[in-house]
Design a protein around this nucleic acid. Structure first.
Lengths: 235, 235
DNA sequence: ACGATACTTCGATGATAGACGAATAACTCT
DNA sequence: AGAGTTATTCGTCTATCATCGAAGTATCGT
């Protein structure tokens, strides 16, 4: 009937505030789990699931399952192309508050992933621990070395007690903002708890964002040879 | 919420079947009266008026009044770009005729961007002209070189006359399908007109797609050392 | 001046679809 | 095995918006 391709359906898919928020979030090229996208769009998981299903059916997104998580990302480059082309003609939206944009930046820098630390800091810390030889990779996990046993004890962590729990000791956890691994499991959780106790990191008012305190910067530098400039990590 | 442009409203505007029909009809670059657009979308004049008002408010269209007629056209070339970018990811399912799918491919290959040539051909031609030293980049514009003056004259273009117009001489225009620049401005328009006059390119029945004729293939090869195989460009 | 044409505004209506609660399935951790 | 997550499906409710009839404004032809 219509001699034109149905840009209507595609545009209608993008033309919903919840779905657009998700799409813009996925423009970075990263794959994000459904729950994260629901949070970004400020809607319930049920509604998000409905939207994600429609966008997959419409060819905007594809998904991959990892365990109970389902990661969504843009189907192809052309989708990103179209979103960018729309951005060109879209009026700029006023930034509601500085705090929100700061918080968004903070999420990439440092946040908690359940009970362990993630973001740039999480990945960098895991890297340093590997580099210093405190742990070594072992399949999907990390195993503590002799030297690690000693250093973790100095840091205030009892590896012995951890071994008594049935939880995974030190699992590799995929980081959505860095696309690399950070440390999960009881070791990751205990370290993060210790970082809170030491006052190196503090939870921001709400959400999962975390800030590194002044003593934290000093501590990370001294204990793990991590370097910062202007409150950002040097890699 | 975020500092990103507000693509929601724009996409929602395009994501209505009646409005999309009007927009696609206006993709040719023509200005059409409201009644004609109502007829194309198969809706009443009242409804059409409502839609047109919203699209003007949203920055998609502009209107000019001539007597009791009101002519609507796309606000700028970026709107056309966005519509075409959407059609790239849309026509996956309903390809009704071979001609339509050919036309979609043609849009990537060669099309007019208002009055100058774009697509693969447009970008490649601009590249060649740069490579041959006929123009050089100068900020957001291109400037003709000594050699360019001579070669353009041989090609049938009077740089002198162009300088007398108030229009930009040779502007860089971003190409959505190639993500690179092609040449706009009076020089780009004049070259494109010359290509039509020489019969190197011809406008397809409707829309902005353009085909390269047999003499065009020979001409591009001879004059600009551009090579093709199977009616596709070799880069 | 008169009716005809082109387009707009206002108001009412009806259909679409986005929202969430409740329940279900799949998975992980203890 | 059981508790706690993550994600989905189903059903219902509600709000938004496209649509058109009726009426209003501006312009043209005669």
């Amino acid at each position: 009937m219509e001699s034109t391709p149905n840009i209507v359906e595609i545009a209608a898919l993008i033309g919903d505030s919840s779905r657009a928020a998700m799409l813009v979030c996925l423009l970075s090229g990263k794959a994000l789990p459904a729950s994260e996208l629901a949070r970004v769009a400020r809607i319930s998981p049920q509604t998000a699931s409905s939207h994600l299903g429609k966008m997959v059916a419409g060819g905007l997104l594809v998904h991959e399952s990892y365990g109970r998580h389902r990661y969504y990302r843009l189907a192809n480059q052309e989708v990103g192309n179209a979103l960018e082309a729309l951005s060109v003609i879209a009026p700029l939206k006023p930034i509601r508050s500085l705090r929100e944009s700061e918080q968004s930046k903070s999420l990439h820098f440092a946040r908690t992933c359940y009970d362990h630390i993630a973001g740039e800091i999480g990945v960098a810390l895991t890297d340093k621990i590997l580099e210093l030889g405190l742990v070594r990779e072992e399949g999907r996990d990390y195993a503590v070395t002799e030297e690690g046993m000693e250093r973790f004890k100095e840091f205030g962590l009892s590896i012995e007690n951890m071994k008594h729990t049935r939880r995974h000791f030190a699992r590799q956890c995929l980081d959505w903002s860095e696309r690399r691994h950070h440390m999960a499991g009881i070791l990751g959780a205990s370290m993060t708890k210790r970082l809170f106790d030491l006052g190196w990191i503090e939870r921001m008012s709400e959400g999962r964002a975390v800030i590194v305190t002044v003593t934290g910067y000093e501590g990370f530098a001294k204990e793990f040879q991590m370097t910062f400039k202007h409150h950002e990590l040097c890699i």
